[in-house]
Design a protein around this nucleic acid. Structure first.
Length: 317
DNA sequence: TAGGCCATCTGGTCCT
DNA sequence: AGGACCAGATGGCCTA
């Protein structure tokens, strides 16, 4: 729950969960970076919160997932933590990976930059303001005056004074040098102020969109989404997402190797025509991903022998 | 109280 | 010229 319309209160505050993170979280995350490099260069991909394997309290365990895929003779996902934690983490990861991301509407048409996206189509995030809209969404660029009033309401206390000083000081170097001019200069400075407010509103909205994207990313990252678990920080979200991608890539590669191995085995035994990826995959335990792939293959009406693999995996056979 | 994280403002730079 | 993007500065909130 992030403030959108109610920014007037607690302008700099953030929403936090109940549990806390250790002060050395970033250092652990950077150690995860080392794991990532190993995953890139070697056959082992490690991802997740290292906190989960270091701490034993429930909050820390729930705060993350740590798993690794074995590229060699690995079966499944061996874990580095204790057996109970391993099971718990594995279950959490599998459950959370299977969750479908709830993608809310975005205020910015990201399609303009080739990323897709759409506007809110139903209820707007802020009710229409009666007179001078206090909501930045309604006022940002279109009504800078309203944004100005919002700005003044938003910053109460020493910060507003400080920012006023900063603004005036910068104005001295810029257009405010001759502040004692006539009405023309006054209107000019006023217009410049409105322009600055517009810029501020745009920047604020841009950062909100960025945070929305981070929230969406958090929603698809398999970590414990629980009210008792503090929200992932931005850097943690990015690092965890990178870990997750690496893990998925390794798992996919492992699956391809397994399919190739089974294909060779079947061909060598003369049990049937080789090359039937889908037929081989039919013997695999039904996973959501496999089911989805099979559904896609069947819906596209391709021959059953068509390999159901990701693009760019022509060397799998 | 220090440190971490965050929101916001701001000026600069680049692009269309 | 206007907008997007970026980084620095600043202050608030929270936790250890």
């Amino acid at each position: 729950m992030r403030r959108r319309c109610g920014d007037e209160e607690d302008a700099g505050g953030i929403v936090r969960g109940a549990t806390s993170r250790t002060s050395g979280e970033l250092s652990r995350l950077w150690r995860l970076e080392t794991h990532h490099q190993e995953a890139l260069t070697g056959t082992t991909a490690t991802w997740g919160w290292e906190i989960a394997t270091e701490n034993t309290d429930t909050s820390a365990a729930a705060g993350g997932v740590s798993m690794e895929t074995s590229g060699g003779g690995g079966s499944g996902f061996p874990f580095s933590g204790s057996p109970s934690q391993q099971h718990q983490h594995q279950q959490q990861a599998q459950d959370l990976v299977q969750q479908q991301p709830q993608v809310p509407g975005r205020r910015t048409p990201l399609g303009a930059v080739g990323l897709g996206g759409f506007y809110f189509s139903s209820s707007p995030p802020c009710p229409p303001p009666p007179n001078n809209g206090a909501c930045p969404l309604q006022t940002d660029e279109n009504r800078p005056e309203s944004a100005g009033s919002h700005h003044q309401n938003q910053h109460i206390g020493p910060r507003s004074n400080q920012q006023q000083q900063r603004t005036s000081g910068m104005g001295g170097g810029g257009g405010g040098g001759g502040g004692s001019g006539g009405g023309v200069n006054k209107s000019k400075s006023r217009q410049g102020k409105l322009v600055r407010l517009n810029i501020n509103a745009r920047e604020r909205r841009r950062m909100h969109d960025l945070n929305d994207a981070l929230d969406e990313l958090r929603s698809v990252i398999p970590y414990a989404h629980s009210p008792s678990v503090r929200k992932l920080s931005k850097i943690a979200t990015l690092l965890l997402a990178k870990n997750f991608i690496l893990m998925q890539a390794n798992a996919l590669e492992e699956l391809r190797r397994l399919i190739a191995y089974l294909q060779q085995t079947v061909a060598a035994a003369g049990l049937g025509p080789a090359g039937g990826y889908a037929e081989l995959a039919a013997g695999f335990p039904a996973t959501p991903t496999a089911t989805k792939l099979q559904q896609q293959a069947s819906s596209s009406q391709r021959p059953s022998a068509t390999p159901v693999v990701a693009p760019g995996s022509a060397n799998a056979s």
